[in-house]
């Protein structure tokens, strides 16, 4: 879904961590002129609040849209104005940005009005068209300024969300550490490379369809556990926690994988040692080259060579 078409949910919460904002402002201040760049982070739809109990059916017919939370965690930028687009505001990133992590873009221009410019609106539309994120695109406008003797620097900034054809101002929350910001941690969801495994339903015949897995998913599991089938893993997740045997099996697989890795490390260490030690000891073929005395002898010889030639 293109962002331009998606209306801003009733409660759109835009937040940025204090550290990310500080880094962004520093980038804007350090640039000799104007600069712009992409903003990374994550957008998630918060679960809808429980529906209010009502006697009237029509009230429940129109559920409010789930609240949207966009949190900015970082940025990337070239220290150059108009680095994201051409003169007509057509999005031309220096390298293909990861579409999933890009939540918007920022623009810094010194001592200017905090309104989107002609080109910034065009860039916003163009970015949302090319990246097609599932949330309204975020635009952060920064306007650094300073007094004549540079003793006071001010950073004005304003966040906008692209809603239809317009950039609508949105409030930006700066998240810091502390009990006030505990909500932020509750909205955290971990990302894992493990494939999505819906719980099996053995009662239905369609369950066999779920167990059919792709090669990619199996590879992702193999990267952590050797020889532990996806079906078995699904069984572990789906069933109650009592399946200790299966868990043991999984851990045994993990240990096996670790042992295999340890062997590989051992082998490669040996190979490295061969490359370093054996060429030097070629002159001592008659001697045993692995005993400590011989090695000591070799290193002494090398040292005397260095002294003579030096």
């Amino acid at each position: 879904m293109a962002v331009g078409d998606s209306a801003i949910p009733a409660v759109a919460k835009v937040s940025i961590s204090g550290a990310a904002l500080a880094a962004l402002l520093h980038r804007c201040a350090a640039a000799v002129g104007d600069c712009d760049g992409l903003l990374f982070g994550r957008a998630s739809r918060l679960p809808a609040p429980p529906p209010p109990l009502s006697d009237y059916d029509d009230a429940a017919a129109v559920p409010p849209p789930p609240a949207l939370s966009i949190s900015v965690s970082g940025h990337c930028s070239l220290s150059h104005p108009s680095s994201l687009s051409d003169a007509l505001g057509r999005f031309q990133p220096p390298s293909a940005p990861p579409a999933s992590a890009t939540v918007g873009f920022f623009s810094s221009r010194r001592r200017t009005a905090l309104r989107p410019s002609m080109r910034e609106i065009a860039v916003a539309r163009s970015v949302s068209k090319s990246l097609a994120p599932h949330h309204p695109l975020l635009f952060l406008l920064v306007s650094p300024s300073f007094n004549p003797n540079h003793s006071t620097h001010s950073y004005d900034y304003r966040a906008f969300l692209l809603s239809g054809p317009r950039l609508v101002p949105a409030s930006l929350t700066v998240v810091n550490v502390g009990p006030c910001f505990r909500d932020q941690y509750h909205t955290f969801t971990a990302e894992s490379p493990l494939p999505w495994l819906p719980s099996p339903q053995p009662s239905t015949p369609a369950a066999s369809g779920h167990t059919r897995t792709t090669i990619g998913e199996q590879k992702a599991v193999d990267a952590m556990v050797d020889g532990f089938g996806l079906e078995r893993l699904q069984g572990v997740i789906g069933s109650a926690a009592g399946q200790a045997g299966e868990m043991d099996g999984m851990y045994a697989g993990m240990l096996k994988r670790l042992e295999k890795l340890a062997r590989e490390v051992e082998k490669s260490n040996l190979r490295v040692l061969e490359q370093v030690v054996f060429p030097a000891s070629a002159v001592h073929t008659s001697q045993c080259c692995s005993c400590l005395f011989c090695l000591l002898d070799i290193s002494l010889e090398l040292a005397s060579d260095v002294i003579l030639h030096g």
Partner: peptide, 22 residues
């Protein structure tokens, strides 16, 4: 070399010439 940008008046939000071109 960077072409100039323009900030229009506060009442002209809807005036988006580059978007129209696109």
């Amino acid at each position: 070399k960077v072409a100039p940008d323009v900030v229009f008046g506060p009442d002209d939000e809807g005036f988006q010439p580059l978007v129209d071109y696109a």
